[in-house]
Amino acid sequence: MMDLLNILLSESFWAASLRIATPLIFGVLGALICERSGVLNLGIEGIFVVGAMCGWMTVWLGSGLWGGVLVAACAGALFGLLHAILTVPLGLSQHVSGLGITLFATSVSYFTYRTALPNVSSPPRIEPFQALDIPVLSDLPFLGPVLFQQTALTWLALLMVLLVWYVLQRTALGVAIKAVGDNPDSVDAQGLSVYGLRIGAIVAGSALMALGGAFLTMSAFDAFFFGMVNGRGWVCIALVIFASWRPGKALFGALLFGAFDALQVRLQTEMGALVPGQIFLMAPYILSIIALVIAARSADYPRALLTPWFKGQR
């Protein structure tokens, strides 16, 4: 019990929580934007892989880190555009298209990586984002290590929470995106383009998802591995429902998940002798299912989610 308290009071635990939460923040925000416009994007898992691969490879080929981030976002946007074309103007099954995008994006990434590096035993490393070292702030007790010694991408993620919240709550564009996910007919009646809004939301959301992947290879680790995304995208899809499609709650959900994951790693080292380590590895996925079950009953789904809309048809 004392041990648990020690963990919860330690700076390193909270710093790790925020670090683990970062890719999820990007992912949940991305999925949230797509779903708010009425389209489920199950391409998320594959778009994470693309972001991770493209970001890493761009830097490995000699670009700067921010160049890698930009390429990752563009690659994610491109796969998002493909999903958008299939699901919006063509109105195809969002489930199947999303799974197709995940399979396609993953295999494109793996094939590209293998073709560029046919015979490597240990994956080549890049110089990843370093922890920011802000004078004074980074030296603050507790808050310094937790908040101000994170990498720039974590800060970008937190900034994106604010930006997405602002756009959705305070701008006409946000109102339109939410309306198109609830009642596309009304948006169409106002002379706005349902297709345009949905496609735009999916492309923007997918770019954010890819940043979550880029964080993995450019900040959390310094290389690309097969299977490194490991279900993080699917966790985000569960977290969006838990967050009832709100950016602030999405941040909370991602942090909660991050804290839980950080806790299980620490408990694993403390209690490793008593319980098989895999119990702890399973825990985050089980937690996601529990969160989903709790939230599902009262979930206020965007009303037009999963429903295709065709111009000129009611």
């Binding site: 199950l42 489930h95 279900g231 699917w234 966790v235 899809i237 569960a238 429902i241 996925y285 996601s288 299912i289 989903l292 079950v293 599902a296 009953r297 979930a299």
Partner: peptide, 12 residues
């Protein structure tokens, strides 16, 4: 509970 089976089966 109305928990989406896509997500639960994927996580399982």
């Amino acid at each position: 509970f109305g928990a989406d089976e896509v997500v639960t089966t994927l996580l399982l």
